[in-house]
Nucleic acid binder design. Structure first.
Lengths: 338, 338
DNA sequence: TCTAGTTACGTAAACGTTTACATTATACGT
DNA sequence: ACGTATAATGTAAACGTTTACGTAACTAGA
């Protein structure tokens, strides 16, 4: 099969220990033997076996990442960041698509445990007690991205959704809108659902606008079709609305699509602001003004935190809120300047 | 640390061999001992160590997937399919982002070799000789997805781009268009560039339309901005155009965006057809008529082929062209019915 | 010249499995 | 009662590394 360290040792007339030392840059060999060994390695085309290494070192240089939805645009940007950071730190990443299913998540966690990954990144989903139990059983570092848990104290990297939503709503207000509706997520979603709705309400109230239930329509999910269906509903219960805050870009673009179909001009008749700054948000027409979550940077940061934890560089990781940003494009109009 | 098979054996008063047999469903133990062992496993919370297993079995139950662009929408859909198929067959997947860089690709390949993955899926990129050399050196199955190589005979799964492009152009013709332009990829891209341009030309010529160079603008890439920049150019060199075929959905949507800005109505004044059927294609306005590549299915099929090859179920894999499909939405108008 | 320290190695155990082979007990046919 | 096939189990080697420990040679200081 593949040549092993023994073959190299034999060819170079040294012991496997010496070869290993050379391979790992440990002290204890002469330049002369190093040369012999290096030549033997080249001649044989020797490649160290990471599996054997992993067995003895109890380190696989591999991390696992769990997403509810691998092909989602949000997940894929985060993944890019994670992969980059992991690879830069010498780790490979195994992707797992939980499809938001509890049982799948647990299966994957068990699998990662068997594979002896050195750490785990858990994205965009609520941490059930069951998961947390497995985490601590596994005794590997875990970092959360785009989610958090106050019950189970795990380090996370995300943006402050309350403030992001607050800023979005306030941005509309500053642009002269006072009849503002919201297309939100789910009341059952403590991560992206509730905080964004609360931030919205808070912005209204801080600016002397009283929130009324008819200004909001909530959704199970955050998808295009949810947004597309929500706009007509919202418009019906809140006809005087001049601007909408959508809790995700997909929702916003869905709303925009509905507006097109209803012959409502965006932004002239209706301003729309989204949340996420996915790649598509600059591709739609008009380009979407939105709250930017630095997704790949979040993934990257999470990857860095995790690998630092694994390498013991950090004892405990400090959770961080990454700054969001309002990226102004063309879907919001300033009513004052009209 | 974690309990090992030895701990289980001791607790159950049997040998490790027996435990192993029970774990792997091999014959040779009584119901009674099985019960003892199962109990011991449960009490200790024993989890087999896949690393040790991998060492002796020379199988890691892991495959590697290389993408030029992990967060690209195309890649991420393919990844979803691959992950699903792999997982169903008992494999984990390691993702690698080559960023279209040769040196990164090679580094990753070496890494996967060290990690002793059981197989490789290579997506969307041209196979350089150097890669092929490593493939054969690694002696693991490789399957290509969304690319192919006639020089190095590797199994692939993709759609026939020539025919896809041909159908797209012919679809426009059948809808009464005869002044048709194309926003294409690169002449240097033998995978998605040349075949799509040729398919386009062939459709014209088959229908008695003579192709002129001014009907085409080529691009380095397939991105939104390429499309956005290309439309004005194309319109300038081919003003009588009533329809465009774009070699990717991103190009098409970029073109649509440019049309919006130039106050050209889609599809009333200009019909657009894309290629890929990404998720965004139904989110833009008007929803994009496009050639559907079954991306997740392609990933899935590739994953199935690879795992079958690994498990030795298939000796050699048959390359396949998956069928494309024209998905009609609203970006193309029928001129005959006007 | 002797001792102590350093350098350059080699030996062998260990990591946690699987599995070929050996061993024992059991049942069965005559 | 005896051999034999079968079932149940154990022993130990093997997978390819790393590393604690041992040893021999050499250097340097007195």
């Amino acid at each position: 099969m593949n040549p092993t360290i023994k073959d190299v040792a034999k060819k170079a007339n040294v012991s496997t220990a010496t070869v290993s030392r050379i391979l790992n840059g440990l002290p204890g060999y002469s330049e002369e033997t190093k040369k012999k060994v290096t030549e033997a390695i080249a001649e044989l085309g020797y490649q160290p076996n990471a599996v054997a290494r992993g067995l003895i070192n109890k380190r696989t240089q591999t991390i696992g990442v769990l997403f509810p939805d691998v092909s989602g645009m949000l997940s894929s940007e985060v993944l890019e960041g994670v992969e980059r950071a992991a690879h830069d730190a010498g780790f490979s990443v195994i992707v797992c698509n939980t499809a938001s299913s509890g049982s799948r998540t647990i299966k994957y966690l068990r699998l990662l445990q068997e594979k002896r990954v050195d750490g785990i990144i858990f994205a965009s989903e609520n941490i059930k007690d069951e998961y947390a139990a497995i985490f601590s059983e596994m005794k590997v570092p875990v970092v959360l991205v785009s989610t958090e848990s106050q019950k189970h104290t795990l380090p996370f990297v995300r943006v402050n959704d309350f403030e992001g939503a607050f800023s979005a709503a306030e941005f509309l207000i500053k642009n002269g809108h006072c009849k503002i509706g919201m297309i939100g997520g789910s009341f059952d979603d403590p991560i992206a659902g509730v905080p964004r709705m609360n931030g919205f309400k808070e912005a209204l109230s801080k600016n002397g606008i009283e929130f009324e239930p008819n200004m909001l329509v909530a959704n199970e999910g955050y998808r295009f079709n949810d947004g597309k269906n929500s706009l007509p509903k919202l418009l019906q219960q809140f006809p005087e609305m001049t601007a909408v805050f959508a809790a995700s870009d997909e929702l916003a673009i869905g709303a925009m699509s509905a507006a097109h179909e209803m012959n409502i001009k965006v932004p002239e008749q209706l301003s729309i602001i989204g949340y996420d700054n996915l790649k598509i948000s600059e591709m739609c027409y008009p380009p979407l003004t939105t709250i930017s979550q630095p997704l790949v940077q979040m993934g990257e940061k999470a990857g860095e935190m995790l690998t630092a934890l694994i390498d013991g560089k950090e004892k405990t990781a400090e959770s961080i809120y990454l700054p969001f940003e309002i990226v102004e494009r063309l879907s919001v109009i300033n009513r004052c300047k009209q």
